[in-house]
Design a protein around this nucleic acid. Sequence first.
DNA 1: GCCAACGTTGGC
DNA 2: GCCAACGTTGGC
Length: 141
Amino acid sequence: MIANVWLIKSEPIKYPWSKMLEDGRTFWDGVRNHQAKNNLLSMRKGDFAFFYHSNEGMEIVGVVQVVKEAYPDPTAQEGPWVVVDVVPVATLPKSVTLAQLKADPICAYMALVRQSRLSVCSVSEAEFRRVCELADWNPEF
DNA sequence: GCCAACGTTGGC
DNA sequence: GCCAACGTTGGC
């Protein structure tokens, strides 16, 4: 695989996938956790990320791509916080629920499952392929 | 530098 | 609404 894959979480009440599609592009703000911030810093232009609905839905609904690498979070008063710019790439034909991931031998060990509070986590290539299978999605890259 | 208290996130 | 898992804060 050429690019790395990540997973970003959003509460549907705050920023749902439908809004992501509507906006076409957004900066991923509000991360106030160092581990999540470090993941944002590791993102490279062209990397992909699953878009996960936390709290309500609890499922992976779409895929986005990083179009601008980390820069200071405009919504942060101070501190080292950063954002990246992302654009939607695809809506998954079938959403993949947390329950499905937990029940799957490959995905059960995803950072998403192991560290429920981490809002930006990495996804391995094996996990990526498996989620695509579960989603009935055939990535064209 | 340790640790108790507290706050937040997010699954159940 | 509850609670587990973490992160942060502040007293010592």
